[in-house]
C-alpha cells in the first residue's frame, strides 16, 4: 500500500500548505495600514457601512478568534468580498477561471510540442551544433520577461504585421453561447468552426508567451535527464543489444526521464497562474490574472488577497495532480498497489 501512503502524504502536505497560505493571507490582512473595516468597506464607505462591515468580519473579537473565524470562512469558500463590485471574490474568480485554464492548457501543449522534440534531438546529438544552438535558445527563452515578450509579440504580430488579433478573446459578434467559459470549447460545443478558429487566433499569442519560458525550462531539464539516463549503466546492455541511438533515446531514456519532467511541468503550470497576472493584462483577456491585476490597480486589497488565496489553492492542486501522475508513471510504486508479479 506504499502507493496510497505516498498519495495521502501528498494530500496532507497540500492541506498543510493551504493552511500556511491562509495564515499568511490573514497576517497580511492584519498588516494592512489603516483601519481594517474602512479598507474592507472601501474608501467611499460611510461610518454606518464601516460599522456593519466591522461587525460582519468580527473585528471586535480577539485576534485568535478572528483567525479561527477566518479559517472557517476559507473552509466555506468565502474568500472575501470585492469592494469595487460588492460581489464575493469567489464568484468573480469562478467566472473568469475557465478562460485562464484554457490559456494554460493551450500553452502547455505548445510548450511540450516545442520542448520534447528539441530535447530529444539535442540529447541524441550531444555536443553537436544543434545541441549547442538549442541550449543557447533555451537560456535566452527562459530569460525573457513574460510581459515584455507579450507586448512585443502583440505589437509586431498584431499591430505591424496584422497576422493575429491584438487583444481580447474573440471578434465582435461571433462569440458562441457561454457554456464552459472557454471560448474555443464553447465554439466547438456550438459546432461553430469559424468561431472556434477565431477564438484560437486570439489564443495563439498569449499561449506562446507562456509556452516559450515553459518550453525553455522543460527542454533544459529533459535534456539533462535524458543525458543522465543515457550515461547510466542501464544503457550499456541496451547498446549491446544492437539498439540504435534513436531507440535508446525514445524507448529507454525518454520513459525514465518522464518522471522528473512531469513533476517540473506541474510546477511550471502552477507558475503560469502567476504569469497570467502580467500576460492576461497585456492581451486584455478575461482571467484570474487580469482580475488580480485590476484589483491591484483599483486598490481593492480584499479582492487581491482573496485572489492570492484562490491562486494558491489552484497551484497546490496542480502540483498535487502532477505528483500523483508522477507516482502512477513509476511501476515500482504502481506495482505494489496492484500487487502484480512475484515477491
Amino acid at each position: 500500500m506504499a502507493y496510497l501512503r505516498l498519495i495521502s502524504q501528498r494530500l496532507v502536505m497540500t492541506v498543510l500548505t493551504l493552511w500556511g497560505l491562509a495564515t499568511l493571507v490573514f497576517i497580511m490582512i492584519k498588516l494592512i495600514p489603516g483601519d481594517e473595516a474602512q479598507v474592507a468597506a472601501g474608501p467611499g464607505a460611510n461610518p454606518e457601512q464601516v460599522a456593519s462591515v466591522a461587525k460582519r468580519l468580527g473585528l471586535d473579537l480577539p485576534v485568535l478568534q478572528q483567525y479561527l473565524n477566518f479559517l472557517l470562512r476559507m473552509l466555506r469558500g468565502d474568500l472575501g468580498t470585492s469592494v469595487v463590485s460588492s460581489k464575493p471574490v469567489l464568484t468573480e474568480l469562478a467566472a473568469v477561471l475557465p478562460s485562464t485554464i484554457e490559456l494554460m492548457i493551450f500553452a502547455s501543449i505548445i510548450g511540450t510540442l516545442i520542448a520534447f522534440p528539441m530535447a530529444l534531438v539535442a540529447a541524441s546529438y550531444r555536443g553537436k551544433a544543434f545541441d549547442g544552438i538549442a541550449r543557447i535558445v533555451a537560456v535566452t527563452g527562459g530569460a525573457m520577461p513574460a510581459f515584455w515578450l507579450a507586448l512585443m509579440l502583440q505589437f509586431f504580430f498584431g499591430n505591424v504585421w496584422r497576422i493575429t488579433p491584438i487583444s481580447g478573446q474573440h471578434s465582435f459578434g461571433i462569440a458562441s453561447p457561454n457554456v464552459t467559459g472557454m471560448p474555443t470549447l464553447d465554439a466547438l460545443l456550438a459546432g461553430d468552426i469559424p468561431a472556434f478558429l477565431d477564438a484560437l487566433a486570439y489564443l495563439i499569442l498569449p499561449a506562446f508567451v507562456f509556452a516559450i519560458p515553459f518550453a525553455a525550462q522543460v527542454f533544459r531539464l529533459l535534456r539533462a535527464s535524458l543525458l543522465g539516463v543515457l550515461a547510466s549503466d542501464m544503457m550499456l546492455p541496451v547498446r549491446a543489444k544492437g539498439a540504435s541511438t534513436s531507440r535508446m533515446v525514445l524507448r529507454h531514456a525518454l520513459p525514465n526521464s518522464l518522471l522528473p519532467t512531469v513533476s517540473l511541468m506541474g510546477v511550471l503550470v502552477g507558475g503560469m497562474v502567476g504569469g497570467a497576472i502580467l500576460v492576461e493584462t497585456v492581451f486584455a483577456r478575461r482571467g484570474v490574472g487580469s482580475f488580480l491585476a485590476n484589483s491591484v490597480a483599483l486598490k481593492d486589497t480584499y479582492a487581491v488577497l482573496g485572489a492570492v488565496m484562490f491562486v494558491g489553492i489552484a497551484v497546490c492542486l496542480v502540483n498535487l495532480v502532477a505528483d500523483i501522475i508522477t507516482l502512477m508513471l513509476d511501476p515500482r510504486i504502481r506495482g505494489t498497489q496492484f500487487g502484480a508479479g512475484a515477491k
Binding site: 542501464m234 550499456l236 539498439a243 529507454h252 511501476p331
Partner: peptide
C-alpha cells in the same frame, strides 16, 4: 549495431542497474 546482440552479446556486472526499471 547490427553485429551487437545478434553475433555478439554482452552481460554486465551489476544486474540491479543493468535493467530498465520502467
Amino acid at each position: 549495431a547490427a553485429m551487437r546482440g545478434q553475433r555478439m552479446g554482452m552481460v554486465f556486472q551489476d544486474p540491479m542497474s543493468s535493467l530498465d526499471p520502467l
